[in-house]
Design a protein around this nucleic acid. Structure first.
Lengths: 183, 183
DNA sequence: GTTCCCATGTAACCCGTTACATGATTTT
DNA sequence: AAAATCATGTAACGGGTTACATGGGAAC
């Protein structure tokens, strides 16, 4: 049995399947505004996965010449690629994502900080969360009109992010209230 | 100016500062049940950071011989180390943590799955979230009694995880309800 | 005429993980 | 006799990041 490929490979495979005929450049931007919120990938990494996927025969690359822009490669999933995607989707996975938060890490050592530093840490966190909320709302608004299955999936993952950010904003308020009367 | 060290280095530094006189072995277990939920580190990595921190002169290692167990190194922060920790805590940071979720990634391609697969994906996610809720509640219960500043910081980071997991559980219910009547 | 957009790539680094090794002592 | 605990480490790998290079056409 071959070594398991990272989920990132399937993320790119699924994206090509979802947006057939896109160039690497386009896929980077699409990835940036679709699954970046729960599976961020850099440009370099995406191009590397493109190489891997064509090497595996899971996607086919076609050269396209353009008049008013540089030539480009466009990608499609092959039958083998669609099968690999289906297999991956059928395999159960551990439901534990990875999460690392610099804010929480610093907050964990809050007793070594001046109260003002803690307050500003929380304020920064709050504004970052508010930005997230706005982003997710914008995504959902944009997909509201569309009623395709792919749009629905996107809308619901955005909802996940929205609910998460909202809950964390409430946490910030809870903590700030506790700081005011407690310490 | 020297290259910035990763947050992991300061995580270990802060932990030694919090639990002085612990061995590497003990620090691994303490890290596992304190900040693992928002900053997981493996045993190998922790030992590597221990080397780095002693090399920097930020922590001092002392050899301790034991009768009923192998000899061990125990660690303390130096004055320089405490200063470095304070500096790091004083530097503002981007409030965006890193998050990667295999569940959401698969869910994003839900239109390529059988409805039963989607249901089982959500069921797995739900039970993982329920386990998280239990873990966070357990941590908070254990720290409820203690009223030190360090315990409070731990309790509040656990609360953050609890609120997050609760919001996501509600999301699962929302989505499941939508699947039943919609599709 | 400089800056932005398209488009693809290289180079280097290192953080983090997994698997494994060792060996004494204590518990089952 | 076997397994778990204490304690520290090595080896190898690869995923992901940041920074940089290139170059033509379009826009301001």
């Amino acid at each position: 049995m071959a070594a398991a490929l990272p989920d990132t490979t399937y993320a790119v495979l699924g994206l090509i399947d979802k947006v057939p005929g896109a160039s690497g450049y386009e896929l980077v931007t699409v990835a940036g505004r679709s699954f970046a919120h729960f599976w961020p990938i850099s440009q370099t990494l995406l191009y590397r996965e493109l190489d891997r996927l064509t090497g595996l025969g899971w996607v086919a690359a076609t050269r396209v010449e353009q008049l008013h822009a540089p030539s480009k490669w466009i990608y499609h999933t092959t039958t083998a690629g669609q099968g690999a995607l289906a297999d991956w989707l059928a395999t159960p996975t551990r439901a534990t994502g990875s999460f690392r938060s610099g804010v929480l890490l610093r907050f964990f050592f809050a007793y070594r900080m001046h109260p003002d530093q803690v307050r500003s840490l929380l304020a920064d966190y709050r504004s970052a969360l508010q930005t997230q909320v706005e982003d997710f709302v914008a995504i959902m608004d944009k997909l509201e009109a569309v009623s395709t299955p792919t749009a629905r999936a996107g809308r619901l993952t955005a909802l996940h992010g929205l609910r998460t950010a909202e809950a964390r904003l409430k946490w910030v308020e809870e903590v700030e209230a506790q700081l005011e009367d407690g310490s």
